[in-house]
Design a protein around this nucleic acid. Structure first.
Lengths: 346, 346
DNA sequence: TTGTATGCGTTATCAT
DNA sequence: ATGATAACGCATACAA
């Protein structure tokens, strides 16, 4: 059904129908009602090709996320955004990246200002420096630039959507997997490896979930949990970690971040028998999952996060569809036997 | 970059450029080369809006899959196809379903003939009746109707793509999860619940993988495996199953299909302590996963399978992109703690 | 072999 | 308040 046909049926011109559709200009009440009724009846849907052709707009989306080395976590969401940019380029969606050093607040501020100067049509934000990110959201709201948040959420930020995971549940799941692997008993160690001043809340939420699960799931007499914090800014932090592991000799280790490969390295070197559970399917973890040193990794589809974030802007800006305000992506359980399917991206 | 601009740069008309792009009509060698060079330089990509507008074709894809009751497995891929149809309707993609009774070969033949009479532009095939499906693929090839296969593959079928899972690896994964849950020891029982003459190979491949894994993974002295086959066509098959479970008293049960809920029901009723692993996140299994009676279910993203199948036809027919010939979707490990994220579809 | 004209459905601008 | 019309980029039929 076309505008032309609607105009014919309503005995008016194209222009009049158009005015009704877009609420622009003046249209007499009776004609307007007649047109609306016909549109309703025939369930008029605009031809997106014709619309795209005549509008021929192009949108620039700015992505503000941490810089990364190859194999590190933030490579993956970034690639997700890139993939989406690729397949949406035909529809006039462009991406401009602004990378910041997640251990340097000034870098975040500087990049976020550059971003705003570039006057993007939309922003994808990874709020790993929580406090500054909240302020940044305020600026975007004032400027009326729509934005979406990935990875970890900011409550009441005004974002058009959040795409990420449920961190507490991630910790609970880790607890289940680790305790099952240690046959429901033994000494468990939580190893938090940090190199900043705890800017974001993901780690602590995961640990919270981990402890909650164990407290709820009966036989507490058989299970012991301890937590150690490793500061990557200290020289020799790897040696300290190794010393601790040697001393504690845990039956199971939980690393609530993608840095689980550091622990895996030590376990392998010393041929410990510890079960090991961590987060995120990054390249640095591949080998240790393959060889079974890491028993389980919990994935959160970072690539999909990036992809959906951009795709949502397409829906929002180009096709004017509503977008879901919260996407909690599945917590995937990845282990030696299903690793291969997750490596090839989805 | 437009055709017009390319024509201007090459000092030719729109028509000539068009002839080069579509290899139609005669074009002098020198002009052709000049045009191709310019197109290369500017990386010409046609405007999909303009193309879509002028072609304005609509494609009908026929989906040939098993009929289902609410909550059964085939509801999910079917919904995936429906979702895709919804979001691709703007692009002129339509779907026509042909459902057959998977326990009735005649029904398959009848529906497949009806499908061919409808002269679709493409076919999505679920080859659960393997032998007949192979013959059907031959017909489609002769008629030059492109088709894709979902769920389980047919080798050298001539399909433009296969979308499904690796059944053997699915069985291996099940073996790992079940043996870990039973602490690496005990009596394991494989329960095959069938209601047809073994038309498709998925079950047997899963069982093959299951056994292989256990044979390879060391301590064979501690593990015992037995297989029972239940025929749903026998009256009182549920009672037989219950009797068997009572007699064998297994430490762990593997049901290599979505019918694991039948076993869960019996385990719950009798309050057995058996660990239980099965396949597929269907509604009938939700409750038992939630309550922990089913320890793990291995999912294969049936909804995504359906979605991708249709989306691939969009790529193939509308945008003329190449499509990946094999999509082995991830084997998702679903358990009480991450169930909720998989229920909301992806 | 090459060039020109028309139309796809929508939007936006210009007269009336 | 309403109608007519040009333009978007591409494909195609037709003219030269």
């Amino acid at each position: 059904m076309t505008i032309k046909e609607i105009a014919r049926r309503a005995n008016v011109s194209l222009g009049t129908v158009d005015r009704v559709i877009h609420n622009r200009g003046k249209v007499s009440k009776e004609k307007k009602e007649k047109i609306l009724k016909i549109m309703e009846e025939v369930d008029y849907k605009p031809n997106i090709y014709a619309r795209g052709l005549v509008l021929n707009k192009s949108y620039t989306i700015a992505a503000l996320m941490p810089e990364f080395e190859v194999g590190e976590y933030w490579e993956v969401p970034s690639r997700g955004v890139g993939n989406a940019a690729n397949s949406l380029s035909q529809f006039g969606i462009k991406v401009k990246y602004f990378y910041f050093d997640q251990n340097n607040i000034d870098s975040f501020i500087k990049q976020s200002n550059k971003l705003i100067e570039s006057k993007p049509d939309g922003v994808i934000l990874a709020p790993v420096i929580n406090f500054e990110a909240v302020k940044f959201c305020g600026k975007l709201r004032k400027l009326d630039i729509p934005f979406s948040i990935i990875d970890s959420n900011i409550e009441n930020s005004g974002a058009i959507c959040f795409i990420g995971q449920d961190s507490i549940q991630s910790g609970r799941l880790a607890a289940k997997l680790l305790s099952t692997s240690t046959k429901g008993r033994g000494k468990l160690l939580i190893v938090s490896i940090k190199n900043n001043e705890n800017h974001n809340k993901t780690l602590q939420k995961r640990i919270e979930g981990f402890n909650d699960y164990l407290l709820e799931s009966s036989n507490l007499d058989d299970i012991h949990v301890e937590e150690v914090i490793i500061n990557q800014r200290e020289t020799n932090w790897k040696n300290s970690l190794e010393t601790i592991l040697k001393k504690k000799h845990p039956d199971g280790v939980y690393v609530p971040s993608s840095k689980v490969h550091f622990v895996a390295e030590i376990i392998k070197k010393n041929m410990f028998e510890s079960k090991l559970v961590g987060n995120d399917l990054i390249k640095n973890n591949y080998y240790y999952i393959e060889s079974g040193i890491i028993d389980y990794v919990i994935g959160q589809r970072p690539e999909t996060q990036g992809y959906l974030a951009l795709e949502n802007f397409y829906k929002y800006l180009v096709t004017n569809q509503k977008v879901r305000s919260i996407h909690n992506l599945p917590l995937d359980i990845i282990t030696k036997e299903n690793l291969i399917f997750y490596k090839t991206n989805f």
